[in-house]
Design a protein around this nucleic acid. Structure first.
Lengths: 337, 337
DNA sequence: TGGCGGTATGTGAACGAACACATTGCCAGT
DNA sequence: ACTGGCAATGTGTTCGTTCACATACCGCCA
C-alpha cells in the first residue's frame, strides 16, 4: 500500500499550498501576484499555508510561463579595479531591490571575439537587460555589429547622443584638473593618459588638451599608459629627469601613485618640485604621500543610475554625472626658477 | 486564410528546429544533450537547423524540467575591496567555464538579519550552491542557524575542521611577517588588527601573538582597526609619537598606507626610523612610499578553488593556500638607540 | 421570484524541454 | 522466411506557473 503522502524530496508547489489552504492553485497564484479580487480571509489562509510549508515560488516555472527571467547582465572588463567594482556593487544592490538578479561576465582581452563570447554567455543566461561598463571603443563597435541584443545601457563619456548611454563628463573633470594646475602657475603639464581605445582615457585626454588650448598654453604629447602604478613609476623615472614639465596629470590615481614613487626615488619633493594630479579618487588616494589631488567620481551613483535607466528608461531628469576636483597636497604652486 | 508561419515575436523552440530539420523534437533534444545514439548525418542536419533559426535552448524550461538552475551564489561583504573583488572575478570565470552563472549578494551591515536576507535572496534565485566570502564570525553563526541551505563552500582561516571550508593560512602569513621584523632586530612590534569578528583579522592577530610568544618577545596590545587607510593614519598619528614600537605590522595594506602617511607627516623616515609591514599585497603596494613589505595572498587562486571544491567536492589534493612574505623597502633593521 | 451584475474562485491549456517508454528499420542467425 | 536484437528515432507526459476563460455565489431590483 503506497502512502498518499507527498514525497519528502520534492519542494512544495502551488498545489500543495492550495490543498492545505483549501483553495485552488489559481487562488494561490493570485495571492502570489497580489491580485485584487481576493477576500482578505482567503489571502491570509493561503499565506499561512505558504508559511507552514516553507513554500517558495519556482523561479524557473514562472520564467518559463512569463518568459521573463528577472535577471540582468553586466559586461565588464577588469572588474577588480576599484571603480568598476563599486559600480557593479551598486548595480547589484539596485537590481536586487527591484527583484532582479545580476550576472556579470568580464572580459580579459578586448578583442571582438572575447566581447562576442561574453555577450553570448549573458544572453544564454536569459538576461532581460544589459549594462555595459567595458569602456573601450572596440567593445561598442563589436556591440553594434551583434544582432538581437537585449535592451541595454552603456557607460560612456563624450557626447554622441546615444540614448542608451549614460554619460560621465570625464572631459569636464580633466579640464578642472588641468585648470587647477594652470592656476597654480604651471605652464608645462604632462599628461599620462590611459590606454588607446578606452573611452574614458580619450575623454580625459581631450579635456586636458582642450583646457590648455583654450588658455593658449603649450601642450606636451600625452603618454599612453595602461592604468597601472607600475607604468606611472616607469614613466616617471624617464620623464621627470628630462625636466620638461612641472606638473603631471595622470588619467587615474594608480598611475599618479607610480609617478609619486618615481619622484621620491629621484629625490624630488612633491609638490615643491613637481605637482601630481590623479583621477578617480580611490579611497587610498588621500593617504598617498603626499595626499593626492584628484578628480572624484561617484561610482556608486553611476551604478544606481544604470539600473534606473535600464528599467525605467531615460527621462527628463536624467542628467550626466559631473566629476569634481578634490585638491590635496600633491599639487602646489610652480617652483620659481 | 492564416499563414502557417511561426509568429515573428516568438523565439524558436525545439519543435521549430525539429520541423526544419525534418526530425522530431526529441532528436533535437538528443543533439542538445550530446546523446550517443545519433547518426552523424542527423546531428548535422539538426545543428544546421539550429544555426539557421538562431535557436537558443530555453534556460527556464530546462531548469524547470531538470530542477537544476546551473547558477551559484556568492555571499560577500565589501566587495569593492581588492581581495574579494578579485576572488569573485575568479569565481565567475571558473563558474562560467563550467556553464554556471554567478549571482552575488553583498551585505553592508553584518547583523543576523542582513545575512539572513541576503541568503534568502540568493536562495530565491534558485542557486544550486553557495560560496561565502563574508569572513565574519557572526556570518557563520547565522548560517549555522539557517535551515535548508544549499551546498556551500566557505572561506575561512584558522582550523576547525569544517569540510566545507577552504582555508588560507592567515596565521602563517602573519607569523612570517612578524618573524621578518624580529629578524631585523625589532623587539617592539605594534599590530594594527582588523575589526573584531573578522576571521582573517583574528587569525592574523593570533599569528602575530604566537610568533612573538614563541620567541619569548614582548607583545604590545593589538589595536583594532577597520581596514581603512584613514584608520591607519589616525592610529599612526597617535601611536608613533608615543615611541613604544619600532615596527608596525598592519593587518592589511590600506592600514599600512595610513601608517606610512602618518610617519611622513610626523617627519619620520621609513624604514630608518620605523618599519611598516602590511598584508594582502594589493597591486599598488609596491608603489607606496616606500614600497611596502607585505604578505601576498593569491586571491584569484582562492576563487578558482572555491568553485572547484563546490562542484567536485573536497578531494585529497585539496590543500590550504599559503600566503607568503614579500619584502620591500618599508621594513629595515631596527634603529640603534 | 426570476434574472442580472458583480465579485470571488475554479478549470483547462500552455510555456519549452527532458525523461521514460514506444516504435521503426535493418541485419544476422536459424 | 521468420525472429531476435540493436541502433536510430518518435510519442506521451511531466515539471510549476500564469493566463484566458468558465463557473459559483451573493444581493438587489423589477
Amino acid at each position: 500500500m503506497s502512502s498518499p503522502e507527498v514525497p519528502r524530496t520534492r519542494a512544495p508547489n502551488m498545489r500543495d499550498v492550495a490543498r492545505l489552504a483549501g483553495v485552488s492553485y489559481q487562488t494561490v497564484s493570485r495571492v502570489l501576484n497580489n491580485s485584487e479580487a481576493l477576500r482578505d480571509e482567503t489571502r491570509e489562509r493561503v499565506l499561512a499555508a505558504m508559511e507552514e510549508l516553507h513554500y517558495r515560488p519556482n523561479r524557473a516555472a514562472r520564467a518559463l510561463k512569463t518568459s521573463r527571467s528577472r535577471a540582468i547582465g553586466v559586461l565588464a572588463s577588469i572588474r577588480s579595479a576599484y571603480g568598476p567594482a563599486l559600480t557593479i556593487e551598486a548595480i547589484e544592490a539596485a537590481a536586487m531591490a527591484r527583484g532582479f538578479s545580476v550576472t556579470t561576465a568580464h572580459i580579459t582581452r578586448i578583442d571582438e571575439q572575447s566581447v562576442a563570447e561574453a555577450i553570448e554567455r549573458l544572453i544564454d543566461q536569459d538576461v532581460e537587460g544589459l549594462v555595459v561598463i567595458a569602456p573601450q571603443q572596440r567593445v561598442f563597435e563589436t556591440l553594434a555589429r551583434l544582432a538581437e541584443l537585449p535592451p541595454m545601457v552603456t557607460l560612456r563619456s563624450g557626447l554622441d547622443g546615444d540614448p542608451r548611454a549614460l554619460w560621465v563628463d570625464q572631459a569636464a573633470g580633466a579640464r578642472a584638473a588641468t585648470a587647477h594646475l594652470v592656476e597654480l602657475g604651471h605652464q608645462y603639464i604632462r599628461h599620462l593618459a590611459g590606454p588607446q581605445d578606452w573611452i574614458e582615457a580619450d575623454a580625459r585626454m581631450q579635456g586636458y588638451l582642450l583646457e590648455l588650448s583654450d588658455r593658449e598654453l603649450p601642450t606636451l604629447p600625452p603618454i599612453r599608459g595602461d592604468w597601472t602604478a607600475e607604468f606611472g613609476y616607469q614613466a616617471g623615472l624617464q620623464l621627470i629627469p628630462a625636466n620638461e614639465a612641472t606638473a603631471y596629470f595622470c588619467s587615474n590615481d594608480e598611475m599618479a601613485l607610480g609617478v609619486l614613487h618615481a619622484a621620491h626615488q629621484l629625490g624630488l619633493r612633491v609638490p615643491q618640485d613637481i605637482s601630481v594630479v590623479g583621477f578617480d579618487d580611490v579611497p587610498a588616494a588621500q593617504h598617498y604621500w603626499p595626499p593626492l589631488t584628484t578628480v572624484r567620481q561617484d561610482f556608486a551613483e553611476l551604478g544606481r543610475r544604470c539600473v534606473q535607466m535600464l528599467m525605467d528608461g531615460r527621462d527628463d531628469t536624467t542628467t550626466d554625472i559631473e566629476p569634481h576636483l578634490v585638491v590635496r597636497g600633491s599639487s602646489g604652486p610652480v617652483r620659481r626658477f
